[in-house]
Design a protein around this nucleic acid. Structure first.
Lengths: 205, 205
DNA sequence: ACCTGAACACCGTTCAAGT
DNA sequence: ACCTGAACACCGTTCAAGT
């Protein structure tokens, strides 16, 4: 018995199967997580044979890469939004908070985007572009704060370092390596994380 | 044909299968990565039936958890070593560097330790303890720098934040989200990452 | 151009049975 | 106490064939 009611089609041809596969894949990702997502199950849920998938995607890796790419586009969007709405003094906190919120609200997608399921062997150009564009927003943010050229080495390493910080927090929380009380205020948490590091570094040479 | 020559035993009984399974699992982890590790293959390589594994481990999750726990113990060890060998002015850099090096030298183990393969459903007490002990070293490091009680809230959030930073860097590099030149000096990289954040935060309110 | 069915080589896990 | 064999319900992927 299938875990989900198959919806049998009347027509042999589906029409626009490709986008439907991505939509269903996303749904399944949210339900079962990045490790248990399955091509056969996705196909079955759409009432289509498993092999139909292979007409539209080279393999599972490519489908997942395409899916992850949409995640990076969404992330880029929310970061750009935060950047646009922030003032000079709050810019780092606002962008970091937007990043953190995206991760917390889309944990399975975030795991897919940064996890081991997507091998770099099959890295789609589309995925690499989407990733790079999201990182660009972080670079713009940092360039603005530092008041330096976006292509400078200084901006690059600082953006990388700042990205690491917020990505690390998101990652540790999502994987439950650290557990915080349910009631915690996300804004306070990000603010505290930034301030505590500021203080720590002020003590260093 | 098996991908690895099975070594048939003469005796029915193996003796100490449990540790051997963990050793072989580690070997396989390093060869094929955390997503492709397989109980059947591990058993076959030891010349033992796949079901023998289930006498020693409840399931795959438990085996992987036990394996990950050894990773956290090793990490704890190298962190402690760095902490012991560092001076007051270099302590943060030294511990961060030790952490970063562990991740770079054991990428598949690191992926397993922080990835999606281990569900929190089957989180072994052993794994939780090992994790917590590694984190304790980071806390001790921070407590020393801040010159505060190790159990204070301030130490906790700062250690968490600092851990996020270095874990984020390791994670982004291992997953090839960012690619650095082969020739890069790890010590310089960590130093630059710390310094760039110090400067960034100095510009914030 | 787009999809199916059968087949292959894998999985993790169970259960009764063997030593 | 420790291990095996057969069986079940899954996978991803290929290939020839159908519409």
């Amino acid at each position: 018995m299938p875990r989900n009611a198959a919806k049998p089609r009347e027509t042999y041809h589906v029409g626009n199967l490709e986008p439907q596969l991505l939509i269903q894949a996303k749904r399944m990702l949210e339900e079962v997580g990045p490790t248990k997502i399955s091509i056969r199950a996705i196909a079955e849920q759409l009432g289509v044979s498993a092999t139909a998938v292979y007409y539209h995607f080279a393999n599972k890796d490519e489908l997942l890469s395409r899916l992850a790419a949409t995640g990076f586009s969404e992330l880029e969007f929310v970061l750009n939004q935060a950047l646009a709405e922030s003032t000079a003094t709050t810019i780092l906190k606002e962008v970091s908070l937007a990043y953190f919120r995206f991760a917390k609200r889309n944990p399975t997608m975030y795991q897919l985007m940064f996890g081991s399921e997507i091998t770099q062997a099959t890295l789609t150009p589309e995925l690499e572009r989407a990733r790079e564009q999201a990182f660009q927003v972080l670079k713009r943010t940092i360039a603005q704060i530092l008041d330096q050229e976006i292509h400078s080495k200084m901006v690059r390493i600082t953006a990388l370092s700042s990205w690491s910080h917020i990505h690390g927090m998101a990652s540790l929380l999502i994987h439950q390596v650290i557990v915080l009380p349910e009631t915690i205020d996300e804004e306070q948490l990000v603010e505290n994380a930034l301030q505590s590091l500021k203080h720590l570094f002020s003590l260093m040479p």
